[in-house]
């Protein structure tokens, strides 16, 4: 900043303006003080609010792993604490089929749920059936002693899709900031069903056996005849 009035003469201590003597050392000191103060302030701010932290790579990886969603742990808790304790909410599969026969739209509204903007309905069902056919990767059931026509089919091979995640009505995508985690839950539920639920059907279901099941159904709107309902079981027992 130039002193007002311009230069009019130099002294050993500074510039004389005629009105006052301007001392460059004083200005330099002020600047120095301002700079030092700002630097101290910056250090204090950075100490309490660091713009970044340097951490060893191993620590960062460990922290990242801790923060990552663990689908297996989530499903372990969900399975025992929420899903299996909710089987009483499942609608009787015979009642659902009857309702679908009478008025599909009303049955979907009363017993089903949809996910977001979709025409596919999901149902949580339970029942007891009699095995009328054992296929390579499915068991087919009739629902009463006399009937031979298939009412329910339970796949026993690889399991795909989101029937249980979305059909149970217990999980909401809005609770998952990253939808990949929500999808990982579905994959883990399917893995658990394949390992824990389906083996008994693969190994012990024979024609004539009675099977108790609880599970979920995915039904597209375009489905004209719901029979046999494809049930993905969370419980399957040979009676």
């Amino acid at each position: 900043m130039a002193p007002a009035g311009g230069r009019s003469g130099a002294t050993s201590e500074g510039w004389s303006t005629g009105l006052q003597t301007f001392h460059p050392m004083t200005t330099a000191k002020k600047r120095l003080m301002t700079g030092v103060t700002a630097a101290v302030a910056a250090v204090v701010v950075c100490w309490f609010l660091p713009p970044f932290r340097v951490v060893p790579l191993e620590v960062a990886q460990e922290q990242s792993a801790r923060g990552a969603f663990r689908a297996a742990e989530f499903v372990e808790a969900f399975w025992h604490e929420r899903l299996l304790t909710s089987v009483d909410r499942a609608v009787d599969v015979a009642a659902l089929l009857e309702a679908l026969d009478e008025d599909p739209a009303a049955a979907r509204g009363r017993y089903g749920r949809t996910l977001g903007l979709s025409t596919t309905a999901y149902f949580f069902v339970s029942g007891v059936g009699r095995v009328v056919e054992v296929q390579r990767s499915a068991v087919v059931l009739a629902l009463d002693e006399e009937a031979t026509s298939p009412a329910v089919i339970i796949g026993t091979g690889p399991l795909f899709g989101n029937a249980v995640r979305d059909g149970s009505g217990l999980l909401d995508v809005s609770d998952f900031p990253n939808s990949q985690d929500f999808n990982a839950v579905s994959s883990e539920i399917n893995r658990r069903i394949e390992e824990d639920v389906l083996p008994v059907l693969r190994e012990e279901a024979a024609v004539g056996a009675r099977v108790r099941f609880v599970g979920c159904v995915e039904l597209a709107e375009a489905t004209r005849d719901p029979r046999p309902l494809r049930v993905v079981p969370i419980v399957a027992e040979i009676l």
Binding site: L115, G116, L117, S118, T119, T120, V173, S174, F176, S179
Partner: peptide, 8 residues
């Protein structure tokens, strides 16, 4: 509003 609305 629902936080997430999946569209089939």
């Amino acid at each position: 509003f629902p936080q997430k609305v999946p569209v089939a």
